[in-house]
Structures are given as C-alpha cells and as structure tokens.
Write a protein that binds this DNA or RNA. Structure first.
Lengths: 212, 212
DNA sequence: GTCCAGCGACCGACCGGATGGTATGCCTAT
DNA sequence: ATAGGCATACCATCCGGTCGGTCGCTGGAC
C-alpha cells in the first residue's frame, strides 16, 4: 500500500534532507500528536513538510493511510525491542525488569507515537484497527509470558492473574504520554526504573517462606 | 455557560422522558465514546437524541460546549467520591484500598466517560483544557496525599515517590477504557480488588522489621 | 554525442459534499 | 402579551481527495 522502506532512491533533491515519505511520516507524527489527527488538515500537513498534496497522495492513498503507516512503524519497533529483551538470557525476574525499564524508556523517547497510538485508533478503518489490535495483543502476550514463567517457577505470586498485572503496567506506560514532559524532574530511565521496581514489588510472593 | 443542573423545569413533554439537556448529555456521551468527538456530527447527535439542532444550540453554545459539560459532570463525580473515601475514618492503608477499589469500580461503571476523557481532551479550547487539567491534578493530589500520609507513618515504602505510584495507578485505571469489556470474565469490583491489591503490595516496605 | 521516448516524482487548481453554526419564527404556558 | 423552548431552512466554510499536467532523469537508437 504505502512505501515506507527507507530506500534512498527518491532522494532526488540531495540538499532537501530525507526523502519525501519519511519527511511526511515524521511531520505527521508531530502534528497528529500535537493537534490530533482530525484537527490536522492535509494541507497543513504537507505545507509543514515542505511538499504538496500531490506528493503526499503519490505515496499514500489517503490521510488514514498515512496514519496507519505510523502505527506500523511503532508496532514494529515495540515488537522488535521486546523480543530482544524477552529472548535474552538470565533469570526471568531480571529479563522482566529490563524489558519493563526499556518499554518506559522507549515510550518516553517516542512520546508522540504513544500519544497518537491510543488517541487515534478509532480513526483507522475497521480492518486496520483490528490488525493493530491484534498485533498489540501479541505484544502483551509476549510480556505476559514472562510473568507466567515466573509464576511457574515460584518467584512471582500467583494469586493475581498475570493478565491483570500486564494490563495495569501497560496502562501506566501508555499514560506517560499524558503527563510526562521532557525536561522535567525525571529522565525516562529514572521513571522506568521506578516503574519496573513497582512492578517487581507487586509480583513478589506475599509470604516468602518466613523462616528463611 | 451551559445549563446542566438537573432541574425538571423543562420537562414540558412528560411522556418523552428526561429533559432535553440531560438527554443530549447522555446521548453525546455514548456517541463520543463510540465514534469519537469529531466523527460525531451535530446532526447525528441531535437525531439520536430525538431533538433538533435548534434545541441543542438553545442549551449549549457549541459542540465543544457540550463536550465540556461532559467533563464537568465526570470531574464532579470523581472528586465527590474520592473525597468521601479519603476523608473517611480508619487506617490509611484501608482508606487507600477502598478508594482504589472504588475508582476502578466507578470507572468500569462509566467507561464511556473515561474513554472520552483522555481521548478528546485536545478538542477543548485552551482555557477549558487547562481548567480540566487543573481539576484533575487536584484529584491526583488528593489521592497522593493518602500515600504520603502512609509514608510518614511508615506503613508505605519511601524509596519510590508517591507521585510515581499515583501516576502509575491512574494510568492503569484510565487504560481500562481500552480493554475492559462489560460481560467479560471479571466484574468491575473484581478488577478493582486486584488492582488495589497490587497497589498496596507495591507500596509495602521492602524489609518490614525482619525481627518482628 | 545527441536526441527522443518513457517514466516516476511531484505540482496545484479544482470539486463535491459535509459540517458547525445561525436567523427566524411558531407554539405553548404563564 | 410576553418569553422561553424548540423547529426549520439555510449559509459560509473548509476539507479530503482528484486529475490533468510539468519537470527532470534515464536509457536505448543511431
């Protein structure tokens, strides 16, 4: 549908910076995050990107197509990072902690993406919304798998469903886009460290063999 | 600006159910939640409410004014409930737990409100958005106050800022509107009980006087 | 080396339709 | 008679999307 591979074939104007599709993508991400999808007109978008409507509709079939491209980019990045952390070596507690820190860190580094992700889901067509939800669910399940693994090993409590803990955690992560401001008191890593610590604390078994 | 007091003075047509402003409010809440604010046209809205545009613009100065009325209603309800729980008697741990359960319960009972709250904030004028944010912050601070109280008493850990815990918790609560479905496996109370338990668990001091 | 055909990248004027909002007046209750 | 509660018709605007056309590069024919 749309061409989002970073091929430099279309860098016909070397001095103008990145290729047109990439420029559109990054400008759209910023504007959609700042003003919302519907508040951003196509004209405004292409002007900000320094191109014209013709250029945009040459690469994307519709405004929604552009939005979907943003979702695809975000999902790909998230999935890739989580897979790296979940598939690493070491005890599950450490893997979970590292993944939990990283997802906060990454979210803070790409706040615009997160802002768009949940706010504009309903602007996608049914098919695409379903596809995004499905991919996102897989992501959750991968994370949940680590918690269940820890539950089987006995290092995490089992009286609270893993699903609940995952949902709660990602809810908090998503919410970062509402309150976190770059340049505030805490860096992304610091928030991530706190968040992960709270996650690990809440998963700790209630009474870990009082005698020992 | 708008008239949202539930006075029955305008029940001129006794058989038609609630007064027009109330009907508009509840229909708008449903439609905005289902389709989003911008996807819902004024015509669609008034048709669904069984009135005409003239009626709507008689009570609300604009479409955005109607949206703001929804925010006011939500904020009033949230604040009122939290105040009741926070100001109750008993140990802070119990008060916090009860409030935490209740906010989940109430959120699940009014999922449409929550869906709108964060998704459509950017559709308000700057002034009103600021007002909503301010009120919402007060709400957070009230909740945070309980945690800080517990920290001073030594029943909650102090190595994680209360602010972080509050933000994390409300992030998860807000996120309910994305995944919770009525008629699913868990009731609102059950989810609330789990959520609150996780909150209390994560606030438990790391080493509670090992000797005793 | 030159020319020309072909092609993808891109331009920007234009269109149909939908939308939020308004002007005006009727109708009923007081 | 007066005023609020509401209906109807209408308007100006703006928006996503289209479409004929231009520009510059590329590669093959000679």
């Amino acid at each position: 549908m749309q061409n989002t591979d970073g091929s430099e074939r279309s860098a016909t104007a070397p001095g103008r910076g990145p290729a047109v599709p990439d420029r559109l993508l990054s400008v759209a991400t910023r504007l959609f995050a700042e003003q919302g999808f519907e508040r951003t007109s196509v004209q405004e978008l292409v002007s900000a990107a320094g191109v014209t409507k013709g250029a945009m509709y040459h690469y994307f079939t519709s405004k929604e197509d552009l939005l979907y491209a943003i979702y695809q980019r975000v999902l790909a990045m998230q999935t890739e990072r989580l897979n790296a952390f979940a598939g690493a070596e070491g005890p599950v507690g450490e893997r979970l902690r590292n993944a939990a820190v990283d997802v906060v860190h990454t979210t803070v580094d790409n706040l615009d993406d997160t802002r768009i992700f949940f706010r504009s889901l309903h602007m996608l067509s049914d098919d695409r919304m379903t596809a995004v939800r499905k991919e996102r669910r897989r992501y959750h399940e991968r994370f949940r798998g680590m918690i269940e693994e820890g539950q089987r090993e006995g290092v995490f409590r089992t009286d609270v469903p893993a699903d609940i803990a995952v949902t709660q955690y990602f809810g908090a992560v998503h919410h970062l886009s509402t309150w976190y401001r770059a340049g505030g008191e805490l860096t992304g890593s610091e928030v991530g460290t706190y968040f992960a610590e709270l996650l690990l604390a809440e998963l700790r078994p209630a009474d870990p063999a009082p005698g020992g």
